[in-house]
C-alpha cells in the first residue's frame, strides 16, 4: 500500500490549486465581459433588452450553482454539444459570475446621484454621451470594491466544479482523502489554501471600500 507523507499531500494540493486559480481567472474574465454586456442591456432605453437582462440575472441568482453545473455538464451533452468538465465548469461559472457582476454594476450606475444625469443633459449631452463621460467613470470608481469582493465568491464557487469531476483543489482533497484517509488534516489544509487565496482579496476589497467612502467623510 502506498504511504502518503504530509509533503505528498501538501504538494498535490498546491498543484491542484493551480487549476482552481486558472478556472477562477477564466470565470472572472468571461464573467466580466459578459457581465459588461448585460449591464449595458440592463441600462438600455429599450424595454425588451432590459427585460431580457433582468430575467437572465434573476434566473442565475435564483437557482443553485450546483444545479447550473449539472445542467451545463450533462444537459449540454443531451442537447448535442460535446462538453468536457473543463468547458462545462468554465461556462457555468462564467454565466453565474456575469449575472452577479451585472447586478453589482447596475447598482453602481444607479448609485450615481441623479443630479449628475440632469446636469449632463442640461449641458446638451445625449444619453450615450452622458453615460460615457459623466456616469460610467463615477460608476466605475464605485464598482471596484464590490467587484474585488465578489472575486472571492468566484474562487469559492470553483470548489463546486469538483462535483462534476473537475480536478481542482477540493476534488484533489477528496481524492487524497480516499487514498490517504486523514480527513481532518486534508480538509483543514484544503480550507487553508482557499483562505490563503481569498483572504488577501477580501482585505483588499475592504481597504478599497474604506478609501472610497472614507475620503468622502473626512
Amino acid at each position: 500500500m502506498i504511504e502518503f507523507t504530509l509533503w505528498d499531500i501538501v504538494r498535490n494540493l498546491l498543484l491542484a490549486a493551480r487549476w482552481t486559480i486558472v478556472l477562477s481567472l477564466i470565470a472572472f474574465a468571461g464573467g466580466a465581459t459578459l457581465g459588461m454586456l448585460l449591464t449595458l442591456l440592463r441600462l438600455s432605453s429599450l424595454k425588451p433588452l432590459r427585460l431580457l437582462a433582468s430575467v437572465y440575472v434573476d434566473l442565475f441568482q435564483g437557482t443553485p450553482l450546483l444545479m447550473q453545473l449539472f445542467l451545463a455538464f450533462f444537459g449540454a451533452a443531451a442537447l448535442g454539444f460535446d462538453v468536457s468538465a473543463w468547458t462545462a465548469a468554465s461556462v457555468a461559472l462564467t454565466l453565474f459570475t456575469s449575472a452577479f457582476l451585472c447586478d453589482i454594476w447596475r447598482g453602481c450606475v444607479e448609485a450615481v446621484p441623479s443630479g449628475q444625469w440632469q446636469a449632463s443633459r442640461v449641458l446638451g449631452m445625449n444619453y450615450m454621451q452622458s453615460m460615457r463621460h459623466i456616469i460610467l467613470p463615477q460608476a466605475l470608481r464605485l464598482s471596484v470594491p464590490p467587484t474585488v469582493g465578489f472575486s472571492v465568491q468566484v474562487i469559492k464557487g470553483t470548489a463546486l466544479a469538483s462535483v462534476i469531476g473537475f480536478v481542482e483543489l477540493t476534488k484533489a482533497g477528496t481524492m487524497l482523502n480516499n487514498a490517504a484517509f486523514a480527513p481532518f488534516t486534508i480538509f483543514a489544509l484544503v480550507a487553508l489554501v482557499y483562505f490563503a487565496l481569498c483572504y488577501p482579496l477580501s482585505c483588499y476589497a475592504r481597504h478599497l471600500e474604506r478609501k472610497l467612502y472614507g475620503s468622502g467623510i473626512r
Binding site: 472571492v152 469559492k156 477528496t174 480527513p183 480550507a191 482557499y194
Partner: peptide, 10 residues
C-alpha cells in the same frame, strides 16, 4: 473565505 463544501466535508 473558504468554500461551503469544504466546511461541510471538514
Amino acid at each position: 473565505n473558504t468554500p461551503f463544501i469544504v466546511q461541510l466535508f471538514f
